[in-house]
Simulated scan of single mutants.
Amino acid sequence: MIASIKKVEQGWIAQFERQLNHSVEETWSWLTDNEKLMKWFPELQVGGLQEGGFMQFDMQNGTFEKLSITELNPNSVLEFDWWAYSVRFEIIPEAEGCQLILKERIETITDHTPKDLAGWHLCLDVIKALMDGQSIEWRAEEWKKWYEEYVKHVNALGTK
């Protein structure tokens, strides 16, 4: 499902939702265990899993950016800075597994926004596939497909 994007007081919120047939604890581990995190977002690592701790982003040039964790409630909420933006994961228990919600706060819509949105969309699809024991050889093709969809989606917002 494509993300919803809504205007808020200071920018925009993109919200992605995925239904998972896995426990809250298992889902949480895919967001916070570096071995699992590496499988769906190899550039991102947990550096200090606590409020005030940090996520670490490998810039692929020998440097790392620290992204502050701004909210942490184990098995429920992980929010961290994403440069000028923020990313928030929420896990909501349900009778048959849980719902995983990702919210990205976007200050300004730019030409790069559809790339980020397609990336997050794909990350969530990869998490679900890995949790379900499926292979993920389809990343490049899927990213391109979703990028094209998010270009249309962002253009429909009338922000440019």
Rank of each mutant, 00 (worst) to 15 (best):
I5D: 01
V8T: 12
W12N: 00
W12C: 03
N21Q: 14
E25G: 03
E25H: 00
T27I: 04
W28P: 07
W30R: 03
D33Q: 09
L37T: 07
L37A: 05
F41S: 12
V46P: 04
G48Q: 14
G48Y: 04
G52F: 02
G53P: 09
G53E: 07
F54D: 13
Q56S: 12
F64W: 09
F64I: 11
L67T: 00
E71K: 13
N73R: 13
P74G: 02
L78D: 06
D81W: 05
W83K: 08
A84L: 11
Y85E: 15
F89T: 07
I91F: 02
E96P: 05
Q99P: 03
I101K: 12
I101V: 15
L102F: 07
E104W: 00
I109A: 07
T110N: 08
T113K: 09
K115T: 15
K115L: 14
K115Y: 15
K115D: 15
K115W: 13
D116P: 03
C123N: 12
D132L: 03
I136A: 06
R139M: 12
A140L: 14
E141R: 11
E141M: 11
K144M: 14
Y147F: 15
K152L: 15
K152W: 08
V154A: 02
L157V: 13
K160I: 14
K160Q: 15
K160S: 12
